[in-house]
Design a protein around this nucleic acid. Structure first.
Length: 114
DNA sequence: TCCTTGACCATTA
DNA sequence: ATAATGGCCAAGG
Protein backbone atom coordinates (compact mmCIF):
# COMPACT_ATOMS: atom_id res chain seq x y z
CA UNK A 1 0.00 0.00 0.00
CA UNK A 2 1.32 3.40 -0.93
CA UNK A 3 0.71 5.85 1.88
CA UNK A 4 -1.39 8.87 0.92
CA UNK A 5 -0.62 12.22 2.44
CA UNK A 6 -3.59 14.39 3.42
CA UNK A 7 -1.85 17.54 2.28
CA UNK A 8 -1.34 16.10 -1.18
CA UNK A 9 -4.99 15.20 -1.36
CA UNK A 10 -6.09 18.69 -0.37
CA UNK A 11 -3.80 20.23 -2.96
CA UNK A 12 -4.94 17.98 -5.78
CA UNK A 13 -8.53 18.70 -4.88
CA UNK A 14 -7.97 22.43 -5.31
CA UNK A 15 -6.08 22.12 -8.57
CA UNK A 16 -8.85 20.00 -10.03
CA UNK A 17 -11.24 22.92 -9.49
CA UNK A 18 -9.37 25.53 -11.49
CA UNK A 19 -11.73 26.43 -14.34
CA UNK A 20 -10.75 26.07 -17.96
CA UNK A 21 -9.29 29.28 -19.28
CA UNK A 22 -8.22 30.45 -15.83
CA UNK A 23 -4.91 30.27 -14.00
CA UNK A 24 -3.60 30.65 -10.49
CA UNK A 25 -0.33 30.44 -8.60
CA UNK A 26 1.33 27.74 -6.52
CA UNK A 27 0.98 29.91 -3.45
CA UNK A 28 -2.72 30.46 -4.04
CA UNK A 29 -3.37 26.75 -4.44
CA UNK A 30 -1.53 26.12 -1.17
CA UNK A 31 -3.54 28.78 0.65
CA UNK A 32 -6.84 27.44 -0.67
CA UNK A 33 -5.81 23.97 0.43
CA UNK A 34 -5.36 25.27 3.96
CA UNK A 35 -1.57 25.28 3.68
CA UNK A 36 -0.47 28.92 3.49
CA UNK A 37 3.17 29.50 2.56
CA UNK A 38 3.52 25.93 1.31
CA UNK A 39 3.92 26.77 -2.37
CA UNK A 40 6.83 24.40 -2.77
CA UNK A 41 4.69 21.54 -1.67
CA UNK A 42 2.28 22.30 -4.50
CA UNK A 43 5.12 22.03 -6.99
CA UNK A 44 6.14 18.77 -5.42
CA UNK A 45 2.62 17.39 -5.65
CA UNK A 46 2.33 18.33 -9.31
CA UNK A 47 5.69 16.78 -10.08
CA UNK A 48 4.51 13.47 -8.64
CA UNK A 49 0.83 13.44 -9.69
CA UNK A 50 0.88 12.81 -13.43
CA UNK A 51 -1.35 9.78 -12.84
CA UNK A 52 -4.23 11.97 -11.66
CA UNK A 53 -4.79 13.92 -14.89
CA UNK A 54 -4.90 17.29 -13.18
CA UNK A 55 -5.00 20.63 -15.07
CA UNK A 56 -1.39 21.25 -14.06
CA UNK A 57 -0.88 23.81 -16.82
CA UNK A 58 -3.19 26.24 -15.00
CA UNK A 59 -0.77 26.60 -12.10
CA UNK A 60 1.86 29.29 -12.61
CA UNK A 61 4.43 31.20 -10.62
CA UNK A 62 3.26 34.12 -8.56
CA UNK A 63 4.68 36.57 -11.11
CA UNK A 64 2.81 35.01 -14.03
CA UNK A 65 5.76 33.17 -15.53
CA UNK A 66 5.68 29.46 -16.28
CA UNK A 67 7.63 27.26 -13.87
CA UNK A 68 9.82 25.75 -16.58
CA UNK A 69 12.81 27.05 -18.48
CA UNK A 70 11.72 28.95 -21.60
CA UNK A 71 12.13 26.75 -24.65
CA UNK A 72 12.10 23.50 -22.70
CA UNK A 73 9.69 20.74 -23.73
CA UNK A 74 7.59 21.30 -20.60
CA UNK A 75 7.44 25.02 -21.17
CA UNK A 76 6.26 24.58 -24.74
CA UNK A 77 3.62 22.03 -23.79
CA UNK A 78 2.26 24.22 -21.01
CA UNK A 79 2.15 27.24 -23.27
CA UNK A 80 0.28 25.25 -25.90
CA UNK A 81 -2.22 23.88 -23.41
CA UNK A 82 -2.88 27.38 -22.13
CA UNK A 83 -3.21 28.82 -25.60
CA UNK A 84 -5.72 26.12 -26.44
CA UNK A 85 -7.87 27.53 -23.62
CA UNK A 86 -7.38 31.10 -24.75
CA UNK A 87 -4.75 31.97 -22.16
CA UNK A 88 -1.89 33.80 -23.83
CA UNK A 89 1.52 35.00 -22.67
CA UNK A 90 2.65 38.57 -23.12
CA UNK A 91 6.31 39.32 -22.47
CA UNK A 92 6.71 35.80 -21.16
CA UNK A 93 3.97 36.14 -18.58
CA UNK A 94 0.30 35.43 -18.09
CA UNK A 95 -1.72 38.41 -16.89
CA UNK A 96 -3.47 37.41 -13.67
CA UNK A 97 -5.75 40.41 -13.83
CA UNK A 98 -7.12 39.07 -17.06
CA UNK A 99 -6.91 35.29 -16.65
CA UNK A 100 -6.67 34.82 -12.88
CA UNK A 101 -8.99 32.44 -11.06
CA UNK A 102 -9.56 35.14 -8.46
CA UNK A 103 -11.35 37.09 -11.14
CA UNK A 104 -14.04 34.41 -11.16
CA UNK A 105 -14.32 34.45 -7.38
CA UNK A 106 -14.94 38.18 -7.42
CA UNK A 107 -17.68 37.73 -9.95
CA UNK A 108 -19.34 35.04 -7.87
CA UNK A 109 -19.10 36.91 -4.59
CA UNK A 110 -19.97 40.40 -5.72
CA UNK A 111 -22.49 39.63 -8.44
CA UNK A 112 -21.34 42.03 -11.16
CA UNK A 113 -23.96 43.99 -13.03
CA UNK A 114 -22.54 43.76 -16.56
C1' DT B 1 18.45 10.25 12.03
C1' DC B 2 20.54 14.04 9.33
C1' DC B 3 21.06 16.45 5.08
C1' DT B 4 19.87 18.03 0.52
C1' DT B 5 16.76 19.15 -2.94
C1' DG B 6 12.66 21.01 -5.13
C1' DA B 7 7.25 22.67 -11.29
C1' DC B 8 7.71 28.22 -4.84
C1' DC B 9 6.92 32.87 -2.24
C1' DA B 10 7.26 37.26 0.41
C1' DT B 11 10.39 40.24 2.30
C1' DT B 12 14.46 42.84 2.43
C1' DA B 13 18.51 45.12 0.62
C1' DA C 1 15.93 45.31 -11.97
C1' DT C 2 18.62 41.26 -9.31
C1' DA C 3 20.06 38.63 -5.05
C1' DA C 4 19.98 36.76 -0.55
C1' DT C 5 17.15 34.79 3.26
C1' DG C 6 13.95 32.19 5.77
C1' DG C 7 9.71 29.66 5.53
C1' DC C 8 7.06 25.28 4.22
C1' DC C 9 6.56 20.03 3.52
C1' DA C 10 7.87 15.61 1.54
C1' DA C 11 11.08 12.37 -0.75
C1' DG C 12 15.38 10.21 -1.20
C1' DG C 13 20.21 9.45 -0.16
Amino acid sequence: MKSVHPNHLAIRRIIAKIPRGRVTSYGDVAARAGLPRCARLVGRVLATSSEYKLPWHRVLRADGRLPFAPGSAEFVEQQQRLAEEGVLLSSGRVDFVRYGWQRNLDAELWAPRD
